[in-house]
Design a protein around this nucleic acid. Structure first.
Length: 448
RNA sequence: GUGGCUUUAGCUCAAUGGCAGAGCGCCUGACUGUGGCUCAGGAGGUUGCGGGUUCGAAACCCGUAAGCCACCCCA
């Protein structure tokens, strides 16, 4: 029989055990911190009806549809379902469906896989984890929710130890107001936002060229826009400067500046140090539905990964599913992107290939019931362990423990059982100690 | 969807058109109550796949697939 190649599809990442453990630890940190800020878990199905997914005008090339491999006579193998490509659209449907049972503001988190029909590249996958939090209001939603998103993210990234990062905050109202004040026509504003968003990637000259050639802005105006957004003074100085600009005569601009000031103050009070967040007028987010605050997060040591966490404020989450106005603000961590890249870069350190902390070696199979009892006692004490059930000398068994980087081995044979004293070997130090079962269990719970 | 580059052992990579190799990893033994270190030995390849040129192809040509990168878009 021909061997089927065991290689997974590119873009559908798969981890080795020690990597998976790091990845899961990241998920644990994210979940704990989401809950610490009062966000409640929900999970939506991996598939939605196609019409739900395309409601926001998503790029249909990005969506994987579900089909059966075979269809009966007169049946179509196609289904009306497709895999979700983000968690925001499903959230909108969920909230619209359950709004009479939910209490608003609704604060939920969701950690699930999503699928995108993309050409994979570094940091870009076709199957990936997204970790979203959103706060949804009914009719209205307080502005300080916008400050909470970066605060939660800051706690998570700090705890994960992913290295220095900067959460960049901006406000789309401010940008729109500014462009309006400059005289950019309404139907060119979205295009302008999107083009300026590329600044970091393609550089000032190309952005100006594109603004002039494609968006048909006056070159002088394009230049003014770029001077405006490239302003990188510190938060307070920038806010003061913005408030002094003649563009303050534009109501939208003034509102944006005001919102940004409130959000920045909130972020600071929620414990994010000034070194870790900034107001960056360059970011706009490509997505059209953001209306106010927007976020992007950059890893200083890995700028090539792009934004590892982004989001923003939207006026109306679920306009396709209900007439009721549901404004919200949310942020999403691209966990697969961060974790896989940082594991490969060695920033997130991998450890043992197993959760087992202790290996119970088997020297004398006639005492198997004793070995099993030892394992049971360890587990009752909360110590992860396993028994070596295979044929093998002590050397083989210790080698097994060594390769899986199991911290301790319990070694007991005829002599130990006769004396009622077990031997515990610390695999890291090589040090051995003896004691009763209880004493040994105790030793494995202490650090070292 | 468009373009560029790449594909040789599990991994990283050599091999001027002339015997397909190294390092690391893996397995066995030295070592039947003690892992890592060392030493000795071993396994592992239709050179991505299909065709062509040639006395002879891993190498050159055509096709195809996959991978990487860039665009697009985005986490």
């Amino acid at each position: 029989m021909a061997i089927i190649t065991p290689k997974p599809m590119s873009g559908f990442p798969e981890l080795l055990p020690e990597q998976q453990r790091v990845f899961n630890r990241c998920i644990d940190i994210i979940r704990r911190n989401f809950e610490l800020s009062g966000f409640t878990p929900i999970e939506t199905p991996s598939v939605e009806r196609k019409e739900v997914l395309t409601s926001k005008g998503a790029d249909e090339k990005e969506i994987y549809a579900l089909a059966r491999l075979f269809a009966g006579e007169g049946e179509s193998p196609d289904t009306e379902f497709a895999l979700h490509f983000d968690l925001t659209v499903p959230l909108a449907r969920y909230v619209a469906l359950h709004k009479e049972k939910l209490v608003f503001p609704f604060r939920r988190y969701q950690i699930q896989k999503v699928w995108r029909g993309e050409r994979p590249q570094k940091g870009r996958y076709r199957e990936l984890y997204q970790c979203d939090i959103d706060a949804i209001g009914r009719g209205s939603l307080g502005l300080l929710n916008d400050a909470e998103m970066p605060a939660v993210i800051h706690r998570i990234f700090t705890e994960m130890g992913i290295g220095d990062f900067v959460i960049r905050i901006n406000n789309r109202r401010l940008l729109q107001g500014f462009y309006h004040w400059l005289g950019v026509s309404a139907d060119h504003i979205a295009d302008t936002l999107r083009t300026v968003d590329k600044l970091e990637k393609i550089g000032r000259d190309k952005v100006v060229a594109e603004l002039v050639a494609r968006v048909q802005l006056d070159e002088a105006i394009a230049g003014q826009i770029l001077d405006f957004v490239a302003d990188d003074r510190p938060v307070d100085a920038l806010l003061t400067h913005l408030a002094s600009l003649p563009a303050m005569s534009d109501a939208l601009f003034a509102q944006g500046v005001d919102e940004l000031r409130t959000v920045a103050a909130g972020v600071r009070s929620l414990g994010v140090p000034d070194s870790d967040f900034t107001i960056d007028l360059r970011i706009a987010r490509g997505l059209g539905y953001y209306t106010g605050t927007v976020y992007e997060t950059k890893l200083l040591a890995h700028p090539e990964l792009g934004s590892i966490c982004s989001g923003g404020r939207y006026d109306d989450l679920a306009s396709y599913f209900t007439n009721e106005k549901l404004p919200g603000v949310g942020i999403s961590i691209g966990l697969s992107r961060i974790a896989i890249a940082l594991i490969e870069a060695g920033v997130l350190k991998t450890d043992a290939q197993t959760p087992s902390r202790v290996l119970v070696t088997v020297l004398d199979p006639s005492h198997m019931s004793d070995y099993l009892r030892i394992a049971s006692s360890l587990r009752t004490a909360g110590v992860a362990c396993e028994v070596y059930f295979e044929k093998g000398r002590v050397g083989d068994q210790l080698k097994y423990a060594d390769r899986k980087r199991i911290h301790f081995a319990i070694i007991a044979g005829e002599d130990e059982f006769a004396a009622g004293r077990l031997k515990l070997k610390n695999m890291r130090t090589g040090e051995e100690s003896t004691g009763s079962l209880d004493e040994i269990v105790n030793l494995t719970t202490s650090d070292r």
